[in-house]
Design a protein around this nucleic acid. Structure first.
Length: 581
RNA sequence: GCCCCCGUAGCUCAGGGGAUAGAGCACAGGAUUCCUAAUCCUGGUGUCGCAUGUUCGAAUCAUGCCGGGGGCACCA
């Protein structure tokens, strides 16, 4: 058994093939069989989509054809002849309009398994991010009520993205921005105050625009039982701060608990209030004033966003002297930028897309490059039940909370489903599907693959079979088409993670895992891992071990558990979600 | 009206210059002496919204149009 070769891995293989093709062209020129043209930079060696096209394809013949004044197929034929003897190929084909198709030897894939094994639990990680420091800010829901399902999607996307970035060699921090100041807070405090009065039997008129949810009553009665009736004698104005602070504290801590139950932990909880208290908001505004990015009109102070790519100028301070939230946002992003991150990722609801241009304008005004900030807009979630959309009215406290969904379908199913779509596409979250303990539920499909492999090792343990050192294993026994397909799919993993990180698209991981699970299940029904032949058993256990690790790692990137056994959870009650109808 | 996103199989969606456009669900049939059948196998469907253009090549890029959603407040 040859030792593993550090020169292996999918990326290396591709680069090697690309170089081989280009060298072959030069050799052809020297030998006089190919016309002397400059090799275009657009030459690419790419993985193929179909098996019949081999493992990789080159488009060199097609893109040089017009300059070379020869037919692509003819050029490809010459190249193929030169490349054919290369030992990493067992075949080089000319196909279609002039593609070169490369079939890598099975030996390469088999030996590559040892390379993967040696990477251990770090397999899938890479240095694609070069240690660059990224901050991901997500959810950041106002602490005026519990999180709803839409926030859940943002949480799943943000957290998983952070995990993927970390695996791809970025340093990552997660941040939650708490809007704990401003008009909404006054409304929140006043809402609690009125419920507090009600608690003590006072007749109050509860305005429509106040927060209607029952949780407001809970907070009020909590205050009543903890602090008694001492606020009854005070004016609303004099005790409002207390009600605001208490309500925010309770709601924020509930939000935090919900998120933790969802597997999301933050490095920083950043308070908007502190931006004002430290004077950063005022300081930033006056600096932008000095730079000429501010002007006054009709008594208000405006940020000249149109000078920097936005369609409108934006108010920073209203004529009544009150700062807008945008003023805080400018200061907040400045604060983030000054903390030295190489990249800021903001994850917002799609309804905030009008905000992107103005915040980017602010970043430019602060003399930073606008691409320091990447905004991901997460589209709305439609909750489906019984094939119908459950309408969510944000007003009047009628919404399905994240907690209800978690209690109903569990964190794993919820996270997986949130991560099966690109974030800019609308997501139909089918509760019946998420709840179902069987076939249709995509999360179990992947988890079951992991559980099956775990079960194989449990059985091996019972038979006192343990995995030998890979160098003592004959990997050439992994020679069925299912073996080779699995080996190839495993090989793709690190590149997939790196690409997902660079594209800021964590959902790619769930696609990959679903595909890998399909291959594993197919393998499982056709072949046994534990066989009568000890050598074959060792080879297959090595494959099983590596595959299992990829599942564990991949599920970890989604924040989904990788169970050793599948066990039915107690059926959640559907009625819990219908309480608002 | 202006801006952003979307339009691909009956449904939900991948693919985002490359070859005969894919997967899941749904529908029908089949598979279990053997590591978990929450699994596997077989069966077919497409005007890639429409139209021009860019080129060796367009579902993919550009422009226009049609349709759906969202955004365009001294709101957040």
């Amino acid at each position: 058994m040859p030792k593993s070769d550090p020169e292996k891995g999918e990326k290396v293989l591709r680069n090697r093939i690309q170089k081989a093709v280009e060298d072959a062209y030069k050799q052809g020129v020297v030998e006089g069989v190919l016309p002397d043209v400059s090799l275009p930079a657009s030459h690419q060696v790419v993985p193929t989509k179909q098996e019949v096209h081999g493992d990789f394809a080159s488009n060199l013949a097609m893109i040089t054809a017009s300059e070379a004044k020869r037919s692509p197929r003819e050029l490809a034929g010459c190249l193929a002849k030169i490349l054919e003897p290369n030992p990493i190929f067992h075949k080089v084909d000319v196909a279609g309009p002039g593609f070169l198709n490369f079939f890598v030897t099975t030996t390469w894939w088999q030996e590559n398994l040892c390379t993967i094994w040696e990477a251990g639990d770090s397999y899938g990680e890479s240095g694609a991010g070069n240690g660059r420091l990224v901050q991901v800010e997500f959810v950041s829901a106002n602490p005026t009520g519990p999180l709803h399902v839409g926030h859940g999607r943002g949480a799943a996307v943000g957290d998983s993205l952070a995990r993927v970035l970390k695996a791809a060699g970025f340093s990552v921090e997660r941040e939650y921005y708490i809007n704990d100041i401003g008009n909404q807070m006054r409304t929140l405090g006043a809402s609690v105050y009125l419920r507090y009065l009600e608690y003590f039997g006072q007749e109050v008129e509860f305005p429509k625009e106040y927060y209607q949810g029952d949780y407001i009553r809970d907070i009020a009665s909590g205050i009543a039982s903890g602090e008694g009736d001492k606020y009854l004698d005070m004016t609303q104005e004099s005790c409002l701060t207390f009600f605001i602070d208490t309500a925010v504290k309770i709601i924020a801590s509930d939000i935090r608990k919900d998120l933790e139950e969802f597997g999301v932990r933050y490095d920083n909880w950043f308070s908007e209030k502190t931006l004002h208290e430290s004077g950063l908001v005022d300081r930033t505004i006056s600096e932008l004033q000095d730079k000429g990015y501010m002007f006054e009109e009709q008594g208000a102070l405006w940020f000249r966003a149109t000078a920097l790519g936005d369609e409108k100028d934006r108010v920073v301070k209203r004529s009544n002297g009150v700062l807008t939230y945008f003023a805080s946002d400018i200061a907040y992003h400045r604060h983030k930028l000054e903390r030295g991150y190489d990249l800021l990722v903001d994850i917002w609801g799609a309804d905030h897309h009008g905000y992107v241009a103005r915040v980017k304008a602010a970043i430019k005004a602060l003399s930073y490059k606008e691409d320091k900030l990447q905004v991901l807009l997460v589209q709305l979630v439609n909750l489906l039940e019984g094939g119908k959309i459950k309408a969510m009215s944000t007003r009047a406290g009628e919404f399905v909370t994240l907690r209800e969904v978690l209690d109903d379908v569990g964190s794993d199913a919820a996270r997986f489903i949130f991560l099966t779509r690109r974030c800019d596409s609308h997501l139909d979250f089918d509760l019946d599907l998420a709840r179902s303990q069987s076939q249709e539920n995509p999360v179990y499909y992947v988890q079951y693959a992991h559980a099956r492999l775990s079960s194989v090792f449990r059985n091996a343990g019972e038979q006192e079979i343990s995995l030998a050192e890979p160098q003592d294993i004959d990997v050439s026994l992994l020679n069925t088409s299912e073996d080779i397909k699995l080996l190839k799919q495993l090989d793709v993993f690190p590149r997939l993670v790196a690409d997902a990180a660079l594209a800021l698209e964590p959902y790619r991981v769930s696609y990959y895992l679903t595909e890998l699970a399909g291959q594993l299940h197919g393998y499982y029904t056709r072949h046994r891992f534990i066989t009568d032949d000890p050598d074959l058993t060792q080879a297959r256990l090595l494959l099983a071990d590596v595959t299992r690790r990829v599942f564990r790692k991949g599920l970890g990137l989604l924040g989904v558990s990788a169970p050793e056994k599948m066990c039915k959870r107690s059926q959640g009650t559907a009625s819990a979600l219908l309480s608002d109808t």
